[in-house]
Design a protein around this nucleic acid. Structure first.
Lengths: 168, 168
DNA sequence: TATTGTTATACTCTATAACTATA
DNA sequence: TATAGTTATAGAGTATAACAATA
């Protein structure tokens, strides 16, 4: 077991100032916890992402699905689902909706008749083009508070945290 | 509108190496998006948190509720809910469960008879003491992949990202 | 009229078992 | 026997409207 360490203690009080409670409640050690700060930031970023994509009627998961299909045309449903951490049963309704909206197309693959080969339609390509512009603006909002080099540093820290945690 | 910028391009390919797809699919620009990396890390950290607290039968939200009550003994339900971003209707069942488990206690406050003053019981204090040790181990796992000073830098970046996004 | 706690309700995400048709 | 897609279902988490008691 590791102790919070002297330098951490300083961080906690700094973070306490940085993350206002909005109500008068004392948050105690909460703002100094990496997991808590990580979750707060992720919730805020997710909300901004969803608000940005409301006009395109695209949720984050749908955006990533379209992106992966464009990047891997003809791939199987299961591969996309697995790559995004979506369980196969839950992915069916997602693909159904994208299909019904005319954004994707499932063609029964010649080789293995139990799997589909999935593609973007022209409408899907066009929507994804528009989405890439929206996501660039969203990302620019996130990096607007960062100095040069910090976005890269942040991505590196996120990747190391992900790897530092079991499950793998 | 802002362009992705030259330095970002380099970051994307670096992150692509750092975040393996596990399946063979090409993730394209996804691993270079701050929002995507942030969400992946948060999901992984949340999973580690929940696994760590399984033995105590405490979910993240319950832990933060107990912590806030200890930090603000006698406070109102609504204040805790608001501080944690939990909607008041959804907070009722949470408090009911904590009460039924004997971890918290609601006493009708003398001053305002429509609100409760909430406290931790001795069992609640004891469970939170145990939880603080578990969370320290959890945090140590997250910082194990970081060099001195990086946890503070990471907290700072998270707070700045949260503030950079609208809603407020 | 406004606030605190509450009920009812609904919608999204996530998770598991089991079916079908193919292999 | 195993795999791809599917169905059904259940559980969290989150959202809004409205009510009773109190201020």
């Amino acid at each position: 077991m590791t102790t919070p360490s002297r330098s951490r203690k300083k961080t906690i009080s700094a973070a306490r100032d940085a993350l206002p409670a909005s109500t008068g409640l004392d948050l105690g050690p909460l703002p100094g916890l990496l997991g808590y700060a990580l979750r707060r930031a992720q919730v805020a970023v997710f909300a901004d992402f969803m608000a940005s994509f409301a006009a395109l009627d695209l949720r984050p998961a749908q955006f990533s699905v379209l992106l992966l299909i464009r990047q891997n045309p003809g791939c199987k449903q299961s591969d996309v689902a697995e790559a995004l951490g979506i369980l196969r049963p839950n992915f069916v309704a997602m693909m159904d909706e994208l299909d019904h909206r005319g954004l994707t197309q499932r063609t029964t693959s010649k080789g293995d008749r139990r799997s589909y080969a999935i593609f973007l339609t022209q409408a899907g390509e066009a929507l994804l083009d528009a989405a890439m512009k929206v996501v660039a603006e969203h990302e620019a909002r996130l990096t607007s508070a960062m100095k040069p080099g910090e976005p890269e540093k942040f991505l590196d820290l996120l990747a190391r945290i992900e790897r530092a945690v079991p499950a793998r």
